[in-house]
Computed example of a mutant assay.
Amino acid sequence: MPVRLTDLPRLLGANELKPAWLIAGSEHLQVMEAADQLRARARDLGYAEREIHDVDHRFDWNELTMSGAAMSLFSMRRVIELRMPTGKPGKEGSAAISAWCADPPPDTLLMITAQEWSKKHEGAWFKAVDKIGVALPIWPLKREETPRWISARMKSRGLKATPDAIEMLAERIEGNLLAAAQEIDKLSLLVGNTLLDVDTLESSVADDARFDAFRLTDAAIAGDATRALRMVDGLRAEGAEAIPLLGWLLNQLRVLLRLSSASGTLAQAFQTERIWDAKQTGFKRALRAGDAAHWERCIVHLGRIDRIAKGRGAGDVWREIERLIMAIAMPRRGADLLGADR
């Protein structure tokens, strides 16, 4: 049976780890931290080699088979990581993972991570992993659960806060746990053992550059192209790193794509995506202006920007980000800027 995140410490405390693990969910921070804990425990148990495979639609699943058949160069335990963002391996991938689980190689741990997850993902390969290993789907926190998570996170960092301050931070981060974690780490350094109140939190968050990415995407989705482009200029002038910004842009574009493709009412989709009332007007505007095909083109263009940022493609990263922001803010006019990606 699939396990919960609260079960992870117990599972990692065993003398031996299960041969296959799946850690999946749209809560990227929790997926990342759970995967980090598994890697750390694996190292403690002698899994000294690590092999990473990024799974996309061009991935050759024979690579997984060959990795399983290959012997360790130094006769050490190995971790084989499959980074599968969509959580959908396809027919060939499902067969390859199922075959691996049917006869797992000795001294080898298979770790699969995914950034999207729902009950619809639970196919034959998922059952194969669950049968011999650990399936850990991480579900998004509900709005009422967020303050409790923030409180526990603060406590783990030695930070004390008033209930009002905790509630304020929950409202400010609007369900983004990564933003909350970053802010809590900063506050723990600034505040120390002093009780964190609303005034201190307000002054800290108001001028925090960490939130520029969130403000930028909010402006673009709301259709305020002028403000969004001005923010891009500011980030570039400050020497900001493009890759973290791209991560949040990808997150929001995937939300727009899921919303535009969702069945049922928009209100239900907003609830599923945890889009709070304050942001719904902007998302409604974006969904009226752009269809699913447009958001898919935006995601493709973002992939091109990511390759440029990592030195794998030619072009000006910030110029391409400007084009993407225009396409988000003004889908009908800005779509022409993505023409090269069609």
Rank of each mutant, 00 (worst) to 15 (best):
M1A: 12
P2Q: 05
L5R: 08
P9I: 05
L11N: 10
G13E: 07
N15T: 15
I23E: 07
A24Y: 01
S26M: 13
H28P: 02
H28W: 01
D36R: 05
Q37P: 04
A42C: 09
G46W: 14
Y47R: 05
E49S: 13
V55W: 00
H57A: 11
H57K: 11
D60A: 09
S67C: 03
S72H: 15
V79A: 04
L82I: 02
R83K: 05
R83G: 01
M84E: 08
K91I: 07
E92Y: 06
S94W: 09
A99Q: 07
C101L: 10
C101T: 04
M111S: 00
T113A: 09
Q115K: 11
K119F: 03
K120C: 03
H121K: 07
G123R: 12
A124T: 10
F126R: 08
F126L: 12
K127T: 11
V129C: 01
I132K: 02
G133R: 03
L136D: 06
P137Q: 12
K142N: 11
R143I: 07
P147N: 02
P147A: 06
R148K: 13
W149S: 06
I150L: 11
I150G: 06
A152F: 12
A152M: 06
S156C: 07
G158N: 00
K160D: 14
A161Y: 04
I166H: 07
E167V: 08
E167H: 07
E171K: 04
E171F: 06
E174I: 03
E174S: 13
L178R: 09
A180C: 10
A180Y: 06
K186V: 01
V191L: 13
G192V: 01
L196K: 03
D197C: 03
V198W: 04
T200F: 00
E202R: 12
A206H: 14
D207K: 14
A213S: 15
F214R: 01
L216N: 04
A220F: 10
T226A: 15
A228E: 05
D233A: 10
L235P: 10
G239T: 05
A240P: 12
E241V: 13
I243A: 08
I243Q: 10
P244Y: 02
P244W: 05
L245C: 13
G247A: 01
W248I: 14
Q252R: 15
Q252K: 11
V255W: 01
L257Y: 11
L257V: 03
S260P: 02
S260Y: 10
S263D: 09
L266V: 08
L266T: 13
A267T: 05
Q268I: 04
A269L: 11
F270L: 04
R274I: 07
D277N: 15
A278E: 09
G282P: 02
A286V: 02
R288F: 11
A289K: 10
D291K: 09
D291L: 07
A293G: 13
H294G: 00
W295H: 12
W295K: 11
H301W: 15
G311L: 10
G311R: 08
G311T: 11
R312T: 09
V317E: 00
L324Y: 13
I325A: 07
A327E: 04
A329Y: 12
P331D: 07
R332S: 15
R332Y: 00
R342C: 05
